[in-house]
Structures are given as C-alpha cells and as structure tokens.
Design a binder for these strands. Structure first.
Length: 221
DNA sequence: GCCCAGGTGGGTA
DNA sequence: TACCCACATGGG
C-alpha cells in the first residue's frame, strides 16, 4: 500500500473536503494557542470569552496579562497562555504596526513558518494550523491524533518524534492533498482509531499492515 | 475523586 | 539530542 492508496481510501470513506479560509490568520493563531493541550470544548469557550470580553485584538493587546488570563481562565492553562498572547500581539504591533497577519500569505512557506515559530508559545503544530487553515498553504499540523493514526499506518516509524513527524509527513504527502489528508485522518481517527493500542484491529487501512514488513511505503502509486 | 482531553518550553543528562 | 515534566480547566 502506498501513500496514494491511503489518500484515495480516505477520500472514498470521508469525501473530498475543499479548503476555505474560515478565520483570519490572527484569529486562527489565537485559536490554535488556546487549543494547545486543551479539549475542544474548553478552547472554544476560552476563545469566545476572549472575544466577548475585549471585542477586538487591539483591545486585547492593550489589556493586562491578568485581564487576559481572567478572560481565558475557563479554558485552562491561562497563566501560561495569557502572557504568550499578550507578547504575540505586542510583537505583531511592533513589527508590522497593525494586528494583521495577512503579510504571511505573501511569504514563501518556510519563511512564514519560521516567523510564526519565532513567536512565544508557537511550535510547529500551532504554526501549521495558521498556514494551512487560514492561508491555504501546504503545511500539515501534526497533533496527537494525526501522530497516532500515522504511526499506526506506518507512515512514520515508531521512533519518529512528533516534531520530526511534521517534516516526514510533509515530504511524503503531495502538497495538493495535505488539507484533505489532515481533515480525513482526523475523521478516521475519530471513527476507528481512538483506542490506546499499538495497532487498531478494526481499522480497514491496517489490515496486514505492521511496521517494517507490509508497512505503507512512500513510493509507488 | 479520578481519568482524559491535549503542545510548548524549560531543565537535565 | 533526547527525555521528562509542569502547566489548569471541565466533562464523563
């Protein structure tokens, strides 16, 4: 089985999601930070609270760390995330004089990613969320679900770290298929691969597939 | 009351 | 470089 077989199978099972930008890059960035190590319910709650409390990002930038922390407390980890959000907004204002990350769309992917990752609290996963979901760039956010499913599929070896997995998977998956791959892997993970087992016996993709012999290869079609 | 959800950065060897 | 751990809240 090849990566193209996996992509084709996922498309048959879950469809062909078409990319469309749902949030501006800054909102996507703040959403991604609030989602770090946090359940979806809590992170959405924290984002909504931040918006309803301050209204605009300029007002968030003017607020104190304590005020931001209070607004996002319902999401958890507020004492870590509030200073990061404050620092990020100040950095954007200092570098670009307005709270607009649209300039990222004009940069080559590696430069846009490097700039994002230079921000406090922004690692590869958070940076790639902004690049993929808001700007439509071929960057793959590897969260715990994507990491777990891709390991079981043999797309990444058992000793590949989550940080390195970003590079490995982006080299493996055709750029034009990254968005649908991400969406469909999450859908697949939710449906059949949740159990904490080294292999997922009910996963169709994994029949006969083990690390090493029989594992999915990057080459071929 | 306990477990699970779930990225980043700092410290250490 | 690799590993370990702190970080905080809410739902089941």
């Amino acid at each position: 089985m090849t990566i193209n077989d996996v992509i084709r199978f996922l498309a048959q099972e879950y469809g062909l999601p078409q990319w469309q930008s749902q949030h501006d890059p800054l909102s996507e960035l703040i959403r991604a930070i609030l989602s770090q190590n946090t359940s979806d319910v809590n992170s959405h709650r924290a984002f909504d609270s931040l918006i309803s409390t301050f209204g605009t990002w300029d007002r968030v930038a003017e607020a104190s760390i304590d005020e931001i922390a209070k607004a996002i407390a319902c999401g958890g980890l507020s004492r870590i995330k509030a200073p990061r959000i404050k620092s990020i907004l100040n950095r954007i204002l200092n570098d670009h004089s307005s709270l607009d990350l649209g300039f990222l769309g004009q940069l080559p992917l590696p430069e846009a990613r490097a700039w994002l990752q230079s921000l406090p609290g922004v690692g590869p996963k958070t940076a790639n969320c902004v690049l993929l979901f808001s700007l439509g760039m071929p960057a793959l956010p590897v969260d715990t679900h994507v990491y777990r499913v891709c390991r079981r599929l043999g797309l990444i070896g058992p000793k590949v770290s989550p940080a390195r997995a970003h590079q490995v998977l982006e080299e493996l998956i055709p750029a034009e298929a990254i968005y649908q791959f991400h969406i469909n892997v999450l859908a697949h993970g939710r449906r059949v691969c949740r159990a904490q087992r080294p292999r997922c016996s009910e996963c169709i993709l994994l029949e006969g597939c083990v690390y090493g012999k029989g594992a999915i290869r990057a080459t071929g079609s």
